[in-house]
C-alpha cells in the first residue's frame, strides 16, 4: 500500500538529510515508496521545499533537490 503524504515526506527528507548523495533528482525519491505514483512523489518533494526543509538546485537546464544546507552553491560560499 502506498504511504500517506506525511509518511512519504518524512521518507524523502530522511533520504535528503542522511543519504550518501546531498543533491538528488526527483527520480531518486521514487524508491522512497515504490507504491506511490511519480506525480505524488513530485508533490510531496515540492511541498518539502514550500515548508523550507529542502531547496531546489538548478543548473538552469536541470533541477535537483537538496536538504536545506546540503546544496552546492556560489552564494553559500560567500560570493
Amino acid at each position: 500500500m502506498a504511504l500517506s503524504i506525511e509518511e512519504l515526506k518524512a521518507a524523502i527528507l530522511e533520504k535528503a538529510l542522511n543519504g550518501p548523495k546531498p543533491q538528488l533528482y526527483l527520480k531518486d525519491f521514487y524508491a522512497c515508496d515504490p507504491d506511490s505514483k511519480p506525480r505524488v512523489i513530485k508533490k510531496a518533494a515540492n511541498e518539502m521545499v514550500t515548508e523550507g526543509k529542502m531547496v531546489f538546485w538548478s543548473s538552469g537546464s536541470t533541477t535537483m533537490y537538496a536538504a536545506k544546507g546540503r546544496a552546492k552553491d556560489e552564494e553559500s560560499r560567500g560570493t
Binding site: N46, V49, T50, G52, V55, F56, W57, S58, S59, G60, T63, A66, A71, K72, D73, E74, E75, S76, T79
Partner: peptide, 20 residues
C-alpha cells in the same frame, strides 16, 4: 560569468536563473 545553483524565489523551482 559563473553559474547560480539555488537562487530563486521561495517555493518556485523555476523562473530565475542564477548568475555571478
Amino acid at each position: 560569468w559563473k553559474h547560480g545553483g539555488i537562487v530563486g524565489v521561495f517555493g518556485y523551482g523555476g523562473g530565475i536563473v542564477g548568475r555571478y
